[in-house]
């Protein structure tokens, strides 16, 4: 099953490579990984999307906790959470595609953020599956380029990951 794991780690050189190295050394999947500094400049927050059986996920959490630079780990799937990802898609916007792309963008509540002679760049946020659905819904031949940030996640309500 897919799990979203959030972690806080020391904002030190090499911390990211310890996490990435752990996943490759132990053969765990990484679907996406995002990392950025938090409001406390000594801490970075990482969101990892991974898949595996419950046993594997349990090992992943334990192994992450074992890394010296990791301060806290939370499996967001253990409770209610919100997941968001940002995608930019550059699509053809000539001929039949011009209206079609505008229409699809509206349906998915995206925004066109750049308009060129023959293309639009659409910005879309939502859960990973919503972004997948958009890609599925539009004509493949219209897609010129896509870029996704990978998921970020946060617990709902009182579920807070903080030191």
């Amino acid at each position: 099953m897919k799990h979203i794991i959030s972690l806080l780690m020391e904002n030190e050189a090499g911390a990211l490579s310890r996490v990435a190295g752990l996943f490759s050394a132990r053969g765990y999947n990484i679907e996406s990984l995002t990392v950025a500094i938090t409001e406390d400049p000594t801490l970075s927050r990482m969101t990892l999307v991974t898949t595996g059986s419950e046993d594997v996920i349990e090992q992943i959490i334990k192994q992450l906790n074992k890394l010296i630079d990791v301060v806290k780990v939370l499996d967001l799937n253990d409770g209610k959470h919100i997941e968001r990802e940002l995608m930019l898609v550059k699509v053809k916007a000539s001929g039949v595609f011009k209206d079609e792309m505008k229409r699809m963008c509206d349906i998915f509540r995206g925004r066109i953020i750049d308009v060129a002679d023959n293309s639009y760049t659409i910005e879309l946020t939502g859960s990973c599956s919503k972004l997948d659905a958009f890609i599925e819904a539009i004509d493949k031949t219209a897609i010129l380029e896509t870029v996704r940030t990978g998921a970020s996640g946060i617990g709902r309500g009182d579920r807070i990951l903080k030191v």
């Binding site: 490579s17 190295g21 010296i68």
Partner: peptide, 14 residues
Amino acid sequence: MVGITRPCVKHNFL
């Protein structure tokens, strides 16, 4: 050295 030893140390420092 920090990169080479990362998978075979408990921790390392530069």
